[in-house]
Amino acid sequence: MKRFSGTLGVQQGTRILFSDFAHDGAMWTGSGPREVRRTETFSEPFLAPPAVMVSVSMWDIDNKANSRIDLSAENITAEGFEIVCRTWSDSRIARIRADWMAIGATQDDEAWDVI
Score class of each variant (00 low, 15 high):
1 M>L: 14
2 K>I: 14
3 R>M: 03
4 F>C: 08
5 S>K: 14
5 S>W: 08
7 T>S: 14
8 L>G: 00
8 L>Q: 02
8 L>P: 00
9 G>N: 10
10 V>E: 11
13 G>A: 14
14 T>C: 08
17 L>F: 07
18 F>D: 02
20 D>S: 02
22 A>N: 08
23 H>I: 01
25 G>A: 02
27 M>R: 09
27 M>P: 02
27 M>L: 09
28 W>S: 07
29 T>L: 11
30 G>M: 03
32 G>T: 12
32 G>L: 13
34 R>V: 07
35 E>F: 01
37 R>N: 14
40 E>I: 15
42 F>E: 02
42 F>N: 01
43 S>C: 06
43 S>W: 01
43 S>I: 10
43 S>T: 14
51 A>C: 00
52 V>R: 03
53 M>E: 13
53 M>G: 12
54 V>E: 08
58 M>R: 10
61 I>Q: 02
64 K>E: 15
64 K>C: 05
65 A>V: 06
67 S>E: 10
67 S>I: 08
69 I>S: 04
72 S>W: 01
74 E>I: 14
75 N>P: 00
75 N>I: 01
77 T>I: 13
77 T>H: 04
82 E>C: 03
82 E>L: 15
85 C>M: 05
86 R>Q: 15
88 W>N: 15
89 S>F: 07
89 S>N: 15
93 I>K: 09
94 A>W: 04
95 R>S: 10
99 D>C: 05
102 A>L: 04
102 A>S: 04
104 G>I: 03
105 A>D: 02
105 A>E: 03
106 T>M: 06
106 T>H: 00
107 Q>W: 04
109 D>T: 12
111 A>S: 15
111 A>D: 13
111 A>T: 10
112 W>K: 13
112 W>F: 11
112 W>P: 00
113 D>V: 15
113 D>C: 11
113 D>E: 14
